[in-house]
Design a protein around this nucleic acid. Sequence first.
DNA 1: AGCGTGACAGCAAGCGCTTTCTATCTGATG
DNA 2: CATCAGATAGAAAGCGCTTGCTGTCACGCT
Lengths: 347, 347
Amino acid sequence: MTVTLADVAARAQVSPATVSRVLNGNYPVAASTRERVLKAVDELDYVLNGPASALAAATSDLVGILVNDIADPFFGIMASAIQSEIGGPGGRAGGERLAVVCNTGGSPERELTYLTLLQRQRAAAVVLTGGAVEDAAHGAAVGNKLRRLAEAGTRVVLCGRPPAPEAIAITFDNRGGGRELTEHLIGLGHRRLGYIAGPEERTTTRHRLEGHRAALAAHGIEEDPRWTVYGRYDRRSGYEATLELLRRDPSLTAVVAANDTVALGACAALRDSGLRIPDDVSVAGFDDLPFSIDAVPSLTTVRLPLSEAGARAGRIAMGREEPPPGGIATVRGELMVRGSSGVPRVG
Amino acid sequence: MTVTLADVAARAQVSPATVSRVLNGNYPVAASTRERVLKAVDELDYVLNGPASALAAATSDLVGILVNDIADPFFGIMASAIQSEIGGPGGRAGGERLAVVCNTGGSPERELTYLTLLQRQRAAAVVLTGGAVEDAAHGAAVGNKLRRLAEAGTRVVLCGRPPAPEAIAITFDNRGGGRELTEHLIGLGHRRLGYIAGPEERTTTRHRLEGHRAALAAHGIEEDPRWTVYGRYDRRSGYEATLELLRRDPSLTAVVAANDTVALGACAALRDSGLRIPDDVSVAGFDDLPFSIDAVPSLTTVRLPLSEAGARAGRIAMGREEPPPGGIATVRGELMVRGSSGVPRVG
DNA sequence: AGCGTGACAGCAAGCGCTTTCTATCTGATG
DNA sequence: CATCAGATAGAAAGCGCTTGCTGTCACGCT
């Protein structure tokens, strides 16, 4: 069998209690004893039994990070930042924590399943990232779960997700960013702007689109319903949606995409249609992922401080930073004007 | 306090043993009893205590996935594929498994720490992805850990990592891919090729570089040591390394990068230096990440079947697929010739 | 000398679940 | 009608660790 605490105790000629205390460092132990124990641990290559420890102490060193799509750098960057703040020592002395990221694939059921799994493991904290699905039933179910988690002592933090009464939230100002972006294009002279939205039922999608529409409205531009197409947050979707937009109205002078990945697909579609960027059509994205600056022309977009927000969420989850007043912090995006947007062709 | 098995048992008027059996479905229980129990579970909103269960049953439903950089789609894509194969029912009936991805950041210590943490949690399986660090001491330490994990019943699978005696491995043929890529360039007429390698002590770096050199050697091209620069696997590194290569030898007609991200940085550097791709300098990457086809010109690279390999590793880890004969499967990359490589300028 | 006071160390009672072994009941069988 | 197998249900013994409480010393004080 595997080595147990008792084995170590026997070897070090102390009681199991003492070994436990040495390992946890939360009770005075004579230096000489400690050394003897540590030596035994080393010699036997002892590894604590996590479940047993968690059961007895009624706490765990697991921290869950939920993401919609782990293959998308948007989430990867946030997850990385969150995790980097969690790895280090936390509450319990010597507290190595196991930060785990769970991929929901954007599915409400999987989100709930993971939350239950995390609850089952008595996770120390949970960070939910990215837009939420707008469905009353699901929203209530998630809210319930979050409340239960919180009741059980799990710290719950939202990052890049709209606020919820059950948790602390670091939210992105998607509406403001969307508005600023479109105002930039309007300022350049664009009047006919296509919009490629994300999945219809997501908060992120809705907020960015609302910002876009607010900008149009503020400038007295009446929106043509043909100018909006919904899709997924991937390149393919951007490609196809752009072709569709072009089919519906070839006179569009700008295409605003739900995010950078989609924008890249849009660029490809425009190029394949023989249109130049930005001479014929301007393109704008959202997020400012690392590859966006390398697009040709480089992408005009809204930079979201993913790393900073993630790091902050991680620190709050570890109780290492005060939650923002009111439990909600809104983080603004920064407009990055680059080569993909320009003055529209005359006509 | 939280609801326990005993509470459910009391409510359903059965013994805790029966509740456990209903939940695990591994022992005959009368339909009527089962229903009563399930009803009680539902009414009390009972959630199993993971640690207690793991302790008693001496098994856990945790599966660890180790990645070098979660913000890099290379790993994100693999992790996503692995996780998708793990989420479903596995060994234990109703077996929801918690697939967790751990970000080592390429650091050997963190790799070891995570391995210990997973061992501590008595993980059901562990999948290590990506290149390993080439350091004898660390290699031995990891080997040891893997052996211990395997001894404790944890299934260990390597994915995109060189084979090790302690585990089943799905390996990428980085050497072959590197060779094929460079041969393609040589075939186009290139004779002076710069190479931007990854971090010096990684297996992936070494293998790809070896393939490159093998191709050069096979064609009687003597390599100039100035033509190789080491860096990190990121865009910045590619940018800087390219400027350095250009400084060392402005007559280079091609730049081969350690991966696509680096290649993108290289493209940017070339463009900023006033050089056209591929007219003045050809560029090649490795991996064929989703954004590579959107580069302008689109990137010539070697496609690695990340999803397929990950899925397979996941299935093997879950015992749902036979391990390959000999415990090692080598997966080849596929040369993708695209716009970034062309005939060198004369001279 | 007598005793309060720290500083350590050990005992033992769980933590909430799984599982072996045993008990009970129901039909079916001869 | 006695007997036995089969099907369920329960009792209880842990799984390996944490921790409240109880010693046991060795000092230093009055």
